[in-house]
Design a protein around this nucleic acid. Sequence first.
DNA 1: ACAAATGATACTATATTAGTATCATTTGTC
DNA 2: GACAAATGATACTAATATAGTATCATTTGT
Lengths: 135, 135
Amino acid sequence: MKFITRDSDYALRALCYIASNREVVKVDELVANLGVPRPFMRKILQKLNKSGILGSTKGQHGGFRLKRPAAAVSVFGIMRIFQGKPELSSCFLKKEVCPERPHCALRKKLCLIEKGVFRQLKEINIASLIKAGRA
Amino acid sequence: MKFITRDSDYALRALCYIASNREVVKVDELVANLGVPRPFMRKILQKLNKSGILGSTKGQHGGFRLKRPAAAVSVFGIMRIFQGKPELSSCFLKKEVCPERPHCALRKKLCLIEKGVFRQLKEINIASLIKAGRA
DNA sequence: ACAAATGATACTATATTAGTATCATTTGTC
DNA sequence: GACAAATGATACTAATATAGTATCATTTGT
Ligand code: FES
Ligand code: FES
């Protein structure tokens, strides 16, 4: 079972790289340093741009830059962008909304777990990752 | 993002049904009551049998029966059977074992979260689900 | 012998994830 | 203004995982 997908993973690496190096970083530099396929990396960065995490400038001295403080970019936020809202508690029996939802014991318990996981994922951010990585 | 897959979900429903009804239950009865496609249900039950959660008898009065007390069958155990060990903390950069594993900050944090989730998933079991469902 | 159950296994379909390819647009430099 | 060097947008393909089906073999009670 995978919890973090590759695009989230690569996105986090790219963000850490950008945050701990220059202001503006080009795709090619990221590719060279992270070993991610170039077109895939581009796709990921463009998505981060659209989501407001990164800003970009085109042209000769263009590239990507962090648009927010590193501490304000959480792992939870990145996962939501690439994987949608992690939903630990889904019911499969019917296609419409499950009629038993309000009473479902399993769902209730999973929701509790979910809350805790989300809270923890929100606490991990680019700044804390960089700091922990250096220690 | 899905956390529990259908087979795990259906397995849990089947187990709850068996545990809260007769000793021995046939596939057809489960299918009739749970609305799961018969061949899929069979596949799931056979896997539960192989895993030692259920026992089975063939022939005319055959069927499936719980092989352990309901309280000893955890959601965690079922998920492991159908989804493999949930691995919140995987690294994608290389195909071999990641050389940075011992130092990786993200992985360390995810491992902590993982531990908590596992503990909680182990605490939820068929007996507690049935009890909570009746309340 | 036969019917009614499960066991084993192989196959197909659908959805998600991972990755590629291409052309358009912006921007600095000559 | 032409051109090179960057990103933007979009559409496509490949690989993998999930969901489900189909079939034949084996066991067991009557
Ligand atoms: S939400 Fe549908 S049975 Fe739990
Ligand atoms: S970078 Fe490989 S385990 Fe985190």
